[in-house]
Design a protein around this nucleic acid. Structure first.
Lengths: 114, 114
DNA sequence: ATTATATTTAGCATTTATGCTAAATAAATG
DNA sequence: CATTTATTTAGCATAAATGCTAAATATAAT
């Protein structure tokens, strides 16, 4: 699987490298309106919903929503928990804030603006 | 032009609507690595560079970079100033921070996490 | 076991994004 | 004015993302 490839690195990624990967994953995940809406919907429901509850609130098909959920999961913006035949998706708001704040921090020194 | 269509609305957009548009524009703009790099490069040069200076630092062709610059401009992450035949692109770091922080604020109430 | 429910995976069609080359524009210079 | 320099616009080819339907999987219920 994909994991094998990723764990096969000769040495671990540096903090900075990981951060760059995070920016890629998080900004890509957040670039689609439905994916942003999923996070907002999750927030409104206390941060945790099943796949079915999420799908109900959108117009796209279930497979399409599943893919969005996987993209959000891969970016670390949600995590999944299997409970019987249900999948519970759990918002990772802190992780999202951290990544976005660390991006913002790069730019926080600047005062060169109108 | 595009402006005519946009100004033809019967009433102005609400604050919330504008914010949603901002999320779309900003997260889409930041979803491409070269566009994020342009902002970082601009930052390293004091927040202002000509189109040519920016293009020099990337491997993509000038037209490709021009398009990236326009996407960043449309998102409000840079502004352009014409000076003779040069275009000076100016980083709008504050605007970027504001948009990302306002997104983060939606999620800042949550403490439901590991 | 059989059926129903919850959800994902496969595979394909369509749209959108990206990247290029060639041509156009517009200011500066000889 | 002709030429060079800085940059954009047009138009097309390719890659990537999105969305769908059908099929598969896996757990729960009868």
């Amino acid at each position: 699987m994909l994991n094998i490839i990723m764990l096969n690195r000769p040495f671990p990624k540096s903090r900075a490298e990981t951060e760059l990967d995070d920016f890629e994953l998080v900004f890509s995940a957040l670039s689609h309106e439905d994916r942003r809406r999923i996070l907002v919907v999750l927030l409104g429901r206390g941060g945790q919903m099943t796949a079915g509850e999420i799908v109900q609130r959108f117009t796209s098909s279930w497979p399409t929503m599943t893919r969005h959920l996987h993209i959000l999961e891969h970016a670390g913006l949600i995590v999944v928990e299997k409970r019987g035949r249900e999948r519970h998706y759990i918002l990772q708001a802190k992780r999202m804030s951290k990544v976005l704040q660390s991006w913002n921090q790069y730019f926080s020194e600047v005062e060169n603006e109108s």
